[in-house]
Design a protein around this nucleic acid. Structure first.
Lengths: 338, 338
DNA sequence: CTGAAAGCGCTTACAG
DNA sequence: CTGAAAGCGCTTACAG
């Protein structure tokens, strides 16, 4: 099965390959009649352009690389948190509507990924989540449009799309306080520098301070971000604290907490109130429904792609920084106490 | 910033580009000493091979395309069912460990995708879920290793990886019967021909028949496969049937059912028992824990990639058909009645 | 408005 | 064991 090439189309039409290429790419000033002839021949021969060849000369791949954190070595990506699949959905969809395709990697965004990006002539890179600052440094060398999702790494090379995490932490805590809670635990993933968790913690402190509630270090608990960690943290909360409410910086954490607390007797929200963060799909469908800080994950993914696209269209665009709003989504996991 | 090419490495070492290419690809019989020289130069110059150029001549891309069903036009992929993200995780991981990358598409697996596959010289295609038989026909033309996940389309062109869906439907129903239930509803997505749902329904009938329980058409309800559909189906179950148990062909459906039934009073599992299918992560962490038919999603994704890899390695390999086992995972959503 | 030709960065027989 | 050279399928100045 011989491949049909641009040459075949040229031969069939009696035109040159240059002309074929021009009409295919909508370049030059080709009269309608010629376009017609070319398009007919393309159709009839079933000609399909080869992206490899195109990419070799144009240095474009129409491919956007998406990097998703690998929870732990050996584990697979995304499993642990539906957040990733939700944003990935949005990214793939938006990219496709704009003529791009998405290549996913569960690697770290380091030097090795830079190499990959260059090998494949990626037109853009979207990195989700926090990574060490050093690994980013490598990526600046590539000169590829790069957007960071949910990272507070400060570098003028990268565009960023995130939410107001600090405010999110603030309103979550305030919501709890306004519902009568004063002993509020903060459950989170690692509080690394430049991480969203750190920001949300700051918001938690903001609210506490505003209402004159003393900070208690033993109310701040961290682990990984997955269901199991939530269950584990819930045990600590149950056994070693006297809190009436917990604020989790991720819905998956909150779900694990609820699972653990409600295992034998129904403790949530009767004895302990639980507040999440993200507003995943599942937050609506679990029992009890999870009260949480809602963010627009779909919009986040869409914007990430748009930032890449804008940069491609306008290479001299400056660093773009976008922050999306957050708001409380009320459901049934928080109780009012007096 | 000039790109470092193979030519630069050749110049730097005084060797020909052919030799460089040979050592890079581990071909030919190059003495260790020469390899050393080449590798050193590659290192020093920071040479990174261009996949586009390589792909152009070798007709290989090291890219595997994964097609995931798009729930509805305008919606984004995967959102509706964590099953997709779990299997995608596994596919990406396995591919990466074998030197391949994954390009995802939320399109249909039709003629248009075939075109994409050819454009990008995909080395393999993995299609998840059921599609119309016609659209597959196009894909056979491409002569690209192709594996179907969870499809009963019978075509010798494709490799398939699935589970024993009929048996799964059977043991689920049998489990319910053995726990005293005789009025059992079957909730599912569309029962299209060659779909897993159709098979699971057959298994449901098998069990009913074995225990001499008459089939009631009004106990078989279908909708889409997502949380909302589950809630919707639960209303029908509650209002128009007298069943004591429901068997859902997907965990997401079961979760929606539980949400709806337990909204006001806790009906599951006290009055109505619920059985799922898939054993998603969330099945363990919802309340009550979901009793379900477990399948090894990780293994499914891994095997899909391995089938592609085997075919690449051995192009004359015949059609491979793999079926993975299923088994009941007991949790708390089913009650024994007498 | 259209074509001849160079060139993108590789791989791979083929020859020696 | 190594190299000269053809060729993969395109795009893009350049010329006319």
């Amino acid at each position: 099965m011989k491949r049909v090439t641009i040459k075949d189309v040229a031969n069939a039409t009696g035109l040159s390959i240059a002309t074929i290429s021009y009409v295919l790419n909508g370049k030059g000033n080709i009269p309608e009649e010629t376009r017609q002839i070319v398009n007919d021949a393309v159709q009839k021969l079933g000609y399909i352009p080869d992206y490899s060849a195109r990419s070799l000369v144009s240095r474009k791949s129409n491919l956007i690389g998406v990097v998703i954190p690998q929870a732990e070595p050996g584990s697979t990506l995304m499993f642990q948190n539906p957040f990733y699949s939700e944003i990935l959905s949005s990214i793939e969809y938006t990219a496709r509507k704009n003529g791009y395709h998405v290549m996913i990697s569960g690697t770290n965004a380091d030097e090795k990924y830079l190499k990959l990006a260059q090998q494949r002539n990626l037109d853009g890179i979207i990195i989700i989540g926090m990574y060490s600052h050093e690994s980013y440094a490598d990526l600046t060398k590539a000169n590829i449009p790069l957007v960071l999702v949910d990272s507070y790494v400060d570098d003028h090379h990268f565009h960023t799309i995130k939410i107001n995490d600090r405010y999110g932490g603030y309103i979550a805590t305030r919501y709890l306080i306004e519902h009568g809670h004063r002993k509020i635990a903060f459950l989170s993933g690692a509080l690394r520098e430049s991480s969203v968790n750190r920001q949300r913690l700051a918001g938690y402190y903001d609210a506490l301070k505003e209402y004159g509630i003393p900070i208690r270090k033993d109310y701040v608990l961290t682990d990984q971000i997955n269901f199991h960690a939530g269950m584990h943290l819930a045990q600590i909360v149950k056994n070693s604290t006297d809190v009436s409410a917990v604020f989790c910086t991720a819905d998956v954490l909150a779900l694990g907490v609820i699972k653990e607390l409600n295992k034998n007797e129904r403790v949530v929200p009767g004895q302990i109130s639980v507040m999440g963060f993200d507003n995943l799909e599942i937050a609506e469908f679990c029992v009890p429904g999870l009260t949480t800080v809602g963010q627009d994950i779909y919009q986040k993914g869409k914007t990430a792609v748009e930032l890449v696209l804008n940069h491609i269209k306008n290479p001299n665009i400056g660093k773009q920084e976008i922050s999306l709003p957050v708001s409380i989504v009320e459901r049934e996991s928080v109780r009012t106490i007096s």
